[in-house]
Design a protein around this nucleic acid. Structure first.
Ligand SMILES: [Zn+2]
Length: 479
DNA sequence: CGCCTTTGACCGGCGC
DNA sequence: GCGCCGGTCAAAGGCG
């Protein structure tokens, strides 16, 4: 700076006018600099806040996990040799998760063989005589669980573990299991790469869809309850609909972080805090609008929250052109493709538009909240309180606009809700913090942008070929 | 050999 | 009660 001023003085001696101009420019530049500094500060503050709240959340999670009465059964094979748990996310997603997982996992591993061996003909069903759920997965603590499942209505048995106490959490998890996040993305590949390992465990013909629906289960940890369904859109086969369900009970590689946190965050939103109030939901998605403008400029991405069907579902439309060069606008009337769903409201996230969110008919939202409330029972209130207790940065946060990967886009879209600190932080950390993570993500997305390589699942070309797939009972419906 | 996919059977919920 | 339907299981086989 001094140098500048010095030279300025020199100039002044030379020529007044010239010096004058220079000075003006300098002033302008200084002002600009100041502004940028200020902005920089602000951004830094925002980032810090986000990070801290993320950590707070994480801590909270850890606390919640620890609070569980988890005492690993001694006989267990012991936590899966730490898969990749220690490596990528270090402190993130601590062992407590593993405690939860293996407890269910150990039982599964230990018991399943015996089951199959003893009862060849009709394994679980005949022998179980009623307690099929218990026999299936959460065998270890079954005795206590059997009673505990009542609120869960027999769904979500595999969330397992957790006997006795922490039933509110149990309820929470049961609901998390019920909540679904479906992602619609264009993909030539039979399955989108989300960084997780999946094993296919079923395939059926959906009723109204010529394309079969495939069921996958996460195999990164033995007891992981996460499932996903993959199905191609009936009208537009280039659109792949992936529906996630449940939350991982194990650490994830950074590459998988985006999608995982996205789904879990969406589930949280659906089932816990922000839904009960229409304003909350609207506001959340509104802010997402703000962010979406940054991250997904003029993309056709939108979030849909549906109260229809057995499960509350968040749908993310990512059917925009992921290629930088491709014409992004094309407004894509994607929802047309969707079969008419009873109660659902949509908050489009086009650049700029803000009003629509408020135009949402309140009763729909009310419907939604009523629905989720119905499922959550009274315990959910506690969960809500817990969620509400978190510091929520009121402002939106910008993510680097470089995300071209659908996964990241999904994360971004969902992340936009201020409540989604987890997802946000995850995304940010994966982008900012982990170079390799970002690189990996970018690499994936760029290399095979559209046709995400079939994750880790070995190439499963089946889906189209195996047309007849499942038994008669499925598709009595004419196709 | 371990992990995965394939695929028919089965289960529970739901509507009639 | 029956049949439909979505979801899951597990035997059998494939692949690296
Ligand atoms: Zn998992």
């Amino acid at each position: 700076m001094d140098g500048w001023i010095g030279s300025l003085r020199c100039l002044r001696s030379l020529s007044l006018t010239r010096a004058h101009v220079f000075f003006l420019q300098l002033a302008a530049m200084q002002a600009e600099l100041g502004r940028m500094n200020e902005e920089n500060h602000r951004l830094r503050g925002m980032l810090a806040q986000v990070t801290s709240s993320y950590q707070a959340l994480q801590m909270h999670l850890v606390a919640l996990m620890q609070q569980r009465p988890q005492m690993m059964p001694p006989t267990q094979p012991q936590p899966p040799p730490a898969h990749q748990d220690g490596k990528a996310d270090g402190a993130v997603v601590p062992r407590q998760f593993l405690d939860l997982g293996p407890s269910g996992a150990g039982g599964e591993a230990a018991e399943e063989p015996s089951n199959s061996s003893t009862e060849v003909g009709s394994p679980r069903r005949s022998s179980s005589t009623g307690n099929k759920d218990q026999e299936r997965r959460d065998s270890p603590d079954a005795p206590s669980t059997a009673a505990g499942w009542l609120p869960g209505r027999g769904m979500a048995p595999q969330l397992g573990g957790v006997a006795g106490k922490g039933h509110d959490q149990q309820a929470q998890e049961a609901n998390m299991r019920k909540a679904r996040v479906s992602v619609r993305a264009r993909s030539e590949a039979p399955i989108i790469a989300d960084g997780c390992q999946w094993r296919k465990y079923g395939q059926k013909m959906a009723k109204g869809n010529p394309c079969p629906r495939a069921y996958y289960r996460c195999t990164m940890a033995t007891g992981c309850p996460v499932r996903k369904q993959v199905q191609r859109c009936a009208e537009d086969r280039s659109i792949l609909i992936t529906t996630y369900e449940g939350t991982h009970n194990h650490p994830l590689p950074p590459a998988a972080m985006a999608m995982a946190s996205t789904t879990s965050a969406a589930a949280s939103m659906l089932l816990s805090g922000s839904m009960p109030s229409a304003d909350g939901a609207a506001a959340g998605l509104m802010s997402s609008n703000f962010l979406a403008r940054t991250v997904l400029p003029c993309s056709s991405s939108m979030a849909t929250i549906s109260a229809s069907a057995p499960f509350p579902t968040v749908t993310l439309d990512l059917t925009h052109a992921p290629q930088p060069g491709a014409p992004p606008n094309a407004a894509v009337p994607l929802n047309v493709a969707r079969p008419p769903a009873p109660a659902q409201f949509q908050v489009p996230l086009p650049g700029g538009g803000v009003a629509p969110a408020f135009a949402v008919p309140p009763q729909v939202l009310y419907n939604q909240s009523k629905f989720s409330g119905l499922q959550m029972s009274s315990d959910s209130v506690a969960a809500d309180a817990q969620f509400a207790a978190h510091p929520r940065p009121p402002m939106g946060v910008q993510l680097p606009g470089t995300l071209s990967d659908t996964v990241s886009a999904a994360a971004a879209a969902i992340t936009a809700d201020p409540n989604f600190t987890v997802a946000l932080a995850a995304a940010i950390t994966s982008i900012i913090g982990g170079q390799h993570a970002a690189a990996a993500a970018a690499g994936n997305s760029n290399a095979n942008n559209n046709n995400a390589n079939a994750a880790n699942t070995t190439s499963n070309t089946n889906n189209t070929s195996s047309n007849n797939t499942t038994s008669n009972n499925t598709n009595s419906e004419t196709q």
